[in-house]
């Protein structure tokens, strides 16, 4: 299950433009790692290289290595579709399949993997919705469309959909930026529970959120607009927010820029 991520020398491009440059870091299993940094610094791009979603953007290209335990996601014989089945992702805006019921949304990934037995699906859907703290709110309307839920519920539905296939890693790209404070709190609590089972990487613009939910924090920055984003430092969250080793990190978290 939860696996270690080991990134070395990773650069990502949009066409000829280099968006992130030479990033290396290690993400421990069963922990939450937060990516912070100003807009455009490449933290979302970097996140999307971890499940090979970057290359679905036209012109998207990646150099370098991402090891999941010992397997290189960018190895020559690795199928990106298979990678995405083991590295789940939750997006900025909740994106349940609009025409599908709540049940079918959660079951979608399982069906892609070939699970069709009704009883097995029902078990996993219940377990996943409970895991996403959504079961009590939707158990009486599993056949209603997922798009009828509130924004926060939809985002938890997307989390349930992502964890239903038992991924090794869960990537979250600003999962709370479209949500109100109460829904945000619900998701943050959920992240705390999920890290018992998954390796979680979360991109956030909210530094309090990074401080609340993460064990380790990585600070990204870019020299100037149009320059590639770089990893400035990664450390224990407590250290990053109290005594970071790089001046730029301190400037950013204390609000002096960005």
């Amino acid at each position: 299950m939860a696996k270690r991520i080991d990134v070395s020398g990773l650069s990502a491009y949009y066409g000829s433009h280099r968006a992130i440059d030479d990033i290396s870091m290690t993400v421990e299993p069963r922990s939450v790692t937060a990516f912070i940094g100003p807009s455009g610094c490449g933290k979302s791009t970097f996140l999307r290289t971890l499940n090979r979603m970057h290359e679905v953007t036209p012109g998207g290209r990646v150099e370098g290595k991402v090891l999941l335990d010992d397997e290189n996601l960018y190895g020559p014989n690795v199928d990106p579709v298979a990678v995405r089945r083991t590295v789940g992702m939750v997006f900025q805006r909740p994106n349940p399949f609009p025409t599908m019921s709540i049940f079918d949304n959660v079951a979608a990934g399982l069906r892609l993997n070939g699970t069709v037995r009704k009883s097995e699906l029902a078990d996993v859907v219940e377990r996943s919705l409970k895991g996403a703290n959504l079961w009590n709110e939707v158990k009486d309307r599993l056949n209603k469309p997922g798009s009828g839920l509130s924004g926060g519920q939809q985002q938890r539905l997307c989390i349930a959909r992502a964890i239903a296939v038992e991924p090794d890693v869960l990537l979250m790209d600003e999962p709370c930026s479209a949500l109100d404070p109460i829904s945000t709190l619900a998701i943050e609590d959920l992240i705390g529970e999920l890290k018992e089972r998954f390796t979680i990487v979360i991109v956030t613009h909210n530094m309090q959120q990074a401080a609340r939910v993460s064990d380790r924090t990585a600070f990204f920055n870019l020299a100037a607009v149009g320059q590639p984003g770089k990893l400035i430092e990664i450390d224990e969250t407590e250290r990053i927010f109290s005594n970071p080793s790089v001046q730029a990190t301190e400037d950013y978290i204390s609000g002096r820029f960005g």
């Binding site: 499940n51 979603m53 679905v56 579709v81 298979a82 990678v83 995405r84 089945r85 083991t86 789940g88 992702m89 997006f91 805006r93 994106n95 349940p96 399949f97 609009p98 025409t99 599908m100 979608a108 990934g109 892609l112 993997n113 997307c158 959909r161 992502a162 296939v165």
Partner: peptide, 27 residues
């Protein structure tokens, strides 16, 4: 078809045909 609907399917490990079946055709 909104990009985010297609990415929802892609991120679950859908092949191109499965993206079409899950996101494009229903939309």
């Amino acid at each position: 078809v909104p990009r985010m609907n297609e990415e929802a399917a892609l991120a679950l490990g859908a092949t191109r045909w499965e993206v079409i079946r899950l996101s494009v055709l229903p939309f």
